[in-house]
């Protein structure tokens, strides 16, 4: 650890110190060479983590249990359990038994349980059995819903943004 810290600090200090004086007399050649080095070290570390951001659950996959992601999930298969992600896409042949939570949920398949999301889109092939808790909902013609659609403006951001329709009802 200490070795890495040691080499990093002098190199950046040295780079900052050395680049500025030569840049003024010789404009192009030394500056790009100095800049490239830290990039080359930095690149291999974030790239493996960043490449596989979206998860795909294919139609042949059945999951019994919880799914949790800080990125997007596309589900074409079967999930028996809760799903939580930023954006959840549920394909036309997908089946979910459980609660689906996310910033955005797009449903074209079947959910038996509950949806809790800021933005909910039920497409024409959607089949929803259970409650939908949302801030913004789109229901296409043909979608099947057996349950309540409840708006939830409980978050602080939306309170200030507009009046509560819940209070009127």
């Amino acid at each position: 650890m200490t070795m890495f810290n040691r080499t990093d600090k002098p190199s950046t200090d040295a780079a900052a110190g050395t680049t500025t004086p030569p840049q003024q007399p010789t404009a192009s050649s030394p500056a790009p060479a100095e800049v490239k080095r830290p990039q080359a070290y930095a690149q291999p570390v974030p790239s493996p983590a960043g490449t596989h951001s979206v998860s795909v659950i294919s139609k042949a996959l059945k999951i019994t249990g919880q799914l949790e992601s800080t990125e997007d999930i596309q589900i074409e298969g079967e999930v028996d359990g809760d799903v939580r992600a930023v954006s959840v896409g549920i394909g036309p042949n997908a089946k979910i038994k459980g609660t689906v939570r996310g910033d955005q949920v797009q449903l074209s398949g079947q959910v038996d349980g509950k949806i809790e999301a800021k933005k909910v889109i039920l497409s024409r092939t959607a089949r929803m059995s259970g409650d939908v808790i949302h801030q913004d909902i789109t229901i296409e013609s043909g979608a099947y819903i057996d349950g309540h659609c409840k708006p939830d403006y409980g978050k602080a951001e939306t309170k200030s943004a507009g009046p509560k329709p819940v209070a009127a009802a």
Binding site: P48, I57, G65, Q66, S69
Partner: peptide, 12 residues
């Protein structure tokens, strides 16, 4: 199927 690096699954 692809389970991304941000995904955690507990189950079968």
């Amino acid at each position: 199927s692809e389970l991304g690096s941000a995904l955690t699954v507990v189950g079968v």
